Simulated scan of single mutants.
Amino acid sequence: MAMHFSVLASGSTGNAIYVEADGQSFLVDAGLSGKQMDLLFKQIGRDASKLTGLLVTHEHSDHIKGLGILARKYKLPVYANAKTWQAMERNIGEIPLDQKFTFDMETVKTFGSLDIESFGVSHDAAEPMFYVFHHEGKKLVLITDTGYVSDRMKGTISNADMYVFESNHDVQMLRMGRYPWNTKRRILSDVGHVSNEDAAIAMSEVAGDHTKRFYLAHLSLDNNMKDLARMSVAQTLETRGIRVGEQFEIYDTDCKIPTDLVCV
């Protein structure tokens, strides 16, 4: 069975990504209520109770809000690194010991024919990390919640078939917006979020011959818009010699509506 995925929800109000391959299925983050998560699964024709496990990227509430509820309701294994477990435990409630698993940063776990690789990102959390899914020569990269994309990250994520890639904010909208300065400074910092332009620069550097799609993810409700993100990314890519639609396509994600379940 080929690898498929759907960005169930992406944005500052909640994040969750579903990935399946060869009878294995995972939810990366559960940043919406348990009820909302179940509705999102119904929209893509899948059942949360059938998940192989839950993978956690970091402890911020927009990534773990429904985690404890789903884990307890469906008796699902939960995977996170030790520092993330420590940081999030008080916010997710009691998880039975036999459902708690450690997934260290910069390691690979294998589930049947699916390999899941973790890698560190630069964000103001305990030990934030994201994931690369490898299956039968196909590669799916999930990377949001990072202040910048380092050379080390680029080496790990380069030449994937598809990406879910942070394009959080428009710098001018953020600077002129209503956020207090300390919040703006945090978002713009190396442990904040990637802007549209910086996302495009990183995209141009990691895209390869296999790359078919980028999904623009974790857009700020206050400091970005889908049309603006797409336009900014496309313009920046064009200055770097890449025309969207020729080498690869760009797709939106939404904070409430899942993307189509697509084959990688």
Results as ranks from 00 to 15, higher is better:
Ser33Cys: 13
Ser33Val: 10
Gly34Lys: 07
Gly34Pro: 10
Lys35Gln: 12
Lys35Phe: 13
Gln36Val: 14
Gln36Ser: 14
Gln36His: 11
Met37Asp: 05
Met37Ala: 12
Leu39Asp: 03
Leu40Glu: 03
Leu40Pro: 09
Leu40Gly: 11
Leu40Asn: 06
Phe41Met: 02
Phe41Gln: 01
Phe41Trp: 01
Gln43Ala: 12
Gln43Cys: 07
Gly45Phe: 02
Gly45Pro: 04
Arg46Trp: 03
Arg46Phe: 01
Arg46Cys: 07
Arg46Gln: 13
Asp47Met: 08
Asp47Leu: 08
Ala48Val: 00
Ser49Ile: 01
Ser49Phe: 00
Ser49Met: 02
Lys50Ser: 10
Lys50Cys: 10
Lys50Gln: 12
Lys50Asp: 05
Leu51Asn: 01
Leu51Gly: 01
Thr52Tyr: 01
Gly53Phe: 01
Leu54His: 00
Leu55Pro: 02
Val56Ser: 02
Val56Ala: 09
Thr57Asn: 07
Thr57Arg: 10
His58Lys: 03
His58Arg: 02
Glu59Ile: 01
Glu59Ser: 13
His60Pro: 04
Ser61Leu: 12
Asp62Met: 06
Asp62Asn: 08
His63Ala: 08
Ile64Met: 03
Ile64Cys: 05
Lys65Asn: 00
Leu67Pro: 00
Leu67Met: 01
Gly68Phe: 03
Ile69Lys: 05
Ile69Arg: 04
Leu70Pro: 01
Leu70Ser: 02
Leu70Trp: 00
Lys73Ile: 07
Tyr74Asn: 05
Tyr74Gly: 06
Lys75Glu: 02
Leu76Asp: 02
Pro77Phe: 04
Pro77Tyr: 00
Pro77Val: 07
Val78Cys: 10
Val78Phe: 03
Tyr79Arg: 06
Asn81Phe: 09
Asn81Ala: 15
Asn81Lys: 08
Ala82Glu: 13
Ala82Pro: 14
Ala82Arg: 15
Lys83Asp: 10
Lys83Gln: 11
Lys83Leu: 13
Thr84Arg: 11
Trp85Thr: 02
Trp85Asp: 03
Gln86Trp: 09
Gln86Tyr: 12
Ala87Lys: 05
Ala87Arg: 02
Met88Asp: 04
Glu89Pro: 07
Glu89Asn: 12
Glu89Lys: 12
Glu89Phe: 07
Arg90Glu: 14
Ile92Phe: 12
Ile92Cys: 15
Ile92Gly: 15
Gly93Phe: 15
Gly93Asp: 14
Gly93Glu: 13
Glu94His: 14
Ile95Tyr: 09
Ile95Val: 15
Pro96Gln: 09
Asp98Ala: 14
Gln99Thr: 10
Lys100Asn: 09
Lys100Pro: 09
Phe101Ile: 09
Phe101Arg: 12
Phe103Ile: 11
Met105Val: 14
Glu106His: 14
Thr107Arg: 11
Thr107Leu: 08
Val108Asn: 07
Lys109Pro: 06
Lys109Tyr: 08
Thr110Tyr: 04
Thr110Glu: 07
Phe111Pro: 03
Phe111Glu: 00
Phe111Gln: 00
Gly112Glu: 06
